[in-house]
Amino acid sequence: MNAHTQRLVLSGPGGDIECAVDQPTVAAGGHLAAPSALMVICHPHPQHGGTLDNKVVQTLARAGLALGYRTVRFNFRGVGASAGVWDEGRGEIDDALAVIEASRAADGAAALPWVLAGFSFGGYVAASAAQKLRDGGNAPARLALIAPSTLKQTVPAVPQDTLVIHGEADDVVPLAATLDWARPQSLPVTVIPGVGHFFHGQLALLKSLVVRAWSQAL
């Protein structure tokens, strides 16, 4: 994503997991800065072209960097250099949990607060991983779901401070599906008028919404 992106491989339950790690920089000179938090991001559906380099995923990473976070994007099993094969969501949640554990155990990250985000199918995975970790008393400090896959997946309930952003004209996950999921939770949903699933032409706005919502220090 930038000159400082580090590509690495972590060990996961299905084999190697390919990751891309970005560190925040100091504007003057572009030197690496000490991160204030760790952010793990889950990409959209592997069987429909989703990868860690998806533009919405990269936009989430840029939002994290703007906030001073170390960001970690990763490929689900069977995508890119990640080993394994599609596992109907079960193994993909396990992949996310493995990346979260390894990223939090990395040098300098153990003491950092951490946040979790996901786009589309990745939103389902992020919400599911957060639920599993919450049950174990190890929940993320913040959770962001961008156009979460509420139509085809059973997305669990999430904390009230979860950031949910959806396009009004989403033709992949209809806005109505996400509102139906959010309504019983009395969960606010930020709707961008006229925008489709991939936020074409509005990625800068998406980034600014995440930065604005999460600008308060952890």
Results as ranks from 00 to 15, higher is better:
W86K: 05
T71H: 05
G78F: 00
R62F: 05
G123R: 12
G89H: 08
V85I: 10
V57R: 02
D135Q: 14
D107C: 02
H48I: 04
S103Q: 11
P35V: 05
L67V: 11
R77L: 04
A63P: 00
G80C: 04
P35R: 07
H48M: 08
G49C: 07
A117G: 14
Y124A: 13
E88N: 14
A61N: 15
S36K: 15
L97W: 01
H48A: 04
S36T: 04
G123K: 12
S103Y: 06
P113M: 15
A127Q: 07
N75A: 09
A106G: 03
I146W: 02
V99Y: 01
H43D: 10
G108R: 09
Y124R: 11
R90I: 09
D87C: 08
K152Q: 11
R142K: 15
P113F: 15
K152N: 13
P113V: 10
G49V: 10
L67Y: 03
T71R: 03
H43W: 01
V56S: 06
H48K: 02
S82F: 01
S120E: 00
V72I: 13
A96C: 15
A110P: 13
T150E: 03
Q58M: 14
T51I: 08
L97Y: 01
P44S: 07
L67N: 00
A96P: 09
A144Y: 06
A126C: 07
M39L: 15
I100Y: 05
E92T: 00
A109S: 11
V72S: 08
R62I: 02
A127E: 06
L97D: 03
G89P: 11
G123Q: 12
V115I: 10
R142I: 00
N138E: 09
F76L: 07
W86G: 00
I93T: 12
D107E: 11
L116M: 07
A129Q: 11
L116K: 13
A81Q: 15
L60A: 14
N138D: 14
G80A: 02
V79F: 03
G136V: 03
A37T: 07
P113H: 13
A144E: 07
L143G: 15
K55G: 02
A127K: 09
G64M: 06
V115H: 10
N138K: 11
S120R: 04
R90M: 09
T51M: 09
Y69I: 10
V56Q: 05
A144D: 07
A34G: 07
V125Q: 05
E101L: 04
V79L: 02
